[in-house]
Design a protein around this nucleic acid. Structure first.
Lengths: 211, 211
DNA sequence: AACTTGGTTAACCATATGGTTGGAACAAAT
DNA sequence: ATTTGTTCCAACCATATGGTTAACCAAGTT
């Protein structure tokens, strides 16, 4: 009886990494075992089958993904504060666990069968769900703090801007001049996203929107 | 000796679809053959090996991906026109061949080894490369048409906003109320992206940016 | 008609892969 | 000391997978 929790965690972490990069089908049990530094039979001892292991990992990923939404959302007084807080904490979450979000994307790419089950829960649970963000925007629009925009599309744009450069990191590093120092790049990106979107939401200034 | 071009194309198209959804490792030769409606041996007859097949498909994808950049960029007089034209044609390209971009994302998720070879070419070829977009932004900044922003980050934000909702389509369809009618959603999204980003680039109006 | 040629297929092969098993190692309980 | 229960592993099994081969067939060519 050396250890049970640690081993399970090692498997879990390794599985997350491998599933995130290779996807559900592409991942090999042997690779996960190697990554975890344990025997392949252990995977089945702790998680029964590849499917169950994936289910376990994906459930965790889904939770994390939705948690990232709720973070740092309270305590902001102005909409600007809220937006900055959201972008900051969201990108921090991505930066800290890139595999979580890569797995999420991978699942979407391969059809997202696993999404259905897990997503229902979060649609009910009003807290932390995108609904909160929507309400913040709607409130800000009513107060006249920002322009009248479609809140869903706005959220989608914010999320896209925050996630996609993590997803396409290899390409970004090849093309973008400053992306060699990734940490610095991430920091700069936070600032840019907030800046661009915040301006984009401001009530119309002297310049009119061309149709 | 029925036909040679057609068969090769069928294989190619099928491979694109399967690679796009399952990734390089996750894709199965048998699945590609089934999708193409031909015998598995044909894959090897025409493309020697799985690796070469992937290389062929990925090369095509890379070309398409970069082509999408250059499109519809000339002939725009104002920056607004240019931006709208770019977003429109870029999203149209995504809409018409979603698999091209899904494969691109998949390659990035699994490390992007294949990127290195192909990307060098496009860094040299100034035409159609992101450089063109960068210059457009720099020119607009100099003219005072838009605020002084980091052009690379701006492009990345535009691209993210255009691509990511395609990548995460399964999630979007589950969460977003209006996404059932995908075509209409795509159209609305075009408008939203342009609107938000164009406003975000306008020279500071009466409202100041909070630090 | 005999013969080549290019496209196609079913059957086959070696290996990889998900999954199983019997038992070793070891600690706690009896 | 013996039992008991948990953790772990080497070896194993059935099937899936990438890749090969030999034969077949339709259409030119001679």
């Amino acid at each position: 009886m050396t250890n049970t929790v640690e081993t399970e965690e090692r498997i879990f972490d390794a599985a997350l990494v491998v599933f995130a990069s290779k996807g559900r089908d592409g991942a090999r049990m042997q690779e996960i075992a190697d990554q975890a530094g344990i025997n392949k039979a252990m995977l089945h001892y702790y998680f029964r089958s590849k499917d169950r292991l994936y289910e376990a990992v994906f459930g965790y990923v889904m939770k994390r993904f939705m948690q990232a939404f709720a973070q740092e959302t309270r305590g902001a007084t102005t909409f600007a504060e809220f937006l900055r807080g959201f972008i900051d904490s969201y990108i921090d979450a991505l930066h800290a666990n890139p595999d979580v979000f890569r797995l999420m994307v991978n699942e979407n790419l391969s059809g997202g069968q696993a999404l259905g089950t897990h997503i229902g829960r979060f649609k009910q649970a009003q807290e932390g769900a995108p609904q909160l963000f929507v309400r913040k925007i709607e409130a800000a629009v009513e107060r006249g703090d920002i322009r009248a925009v479609d809140p869903w599309h706005t959220i989608l744009t914010v999320i896209s801007s925050c996630i996609f450069f993590f997803v396409s990191r290899p390409t970004v590093e090849l093309i973008h001049p400053d992306a060699q120092d990734w940490d610095a790049f991430v920091k700069a990106r936070k600032q840019h996203i907030f800046d661009l979107i915040y301006h984009g939401l401001q009530p119309a200034g002297p310049h009119d929107t061309p149709s």
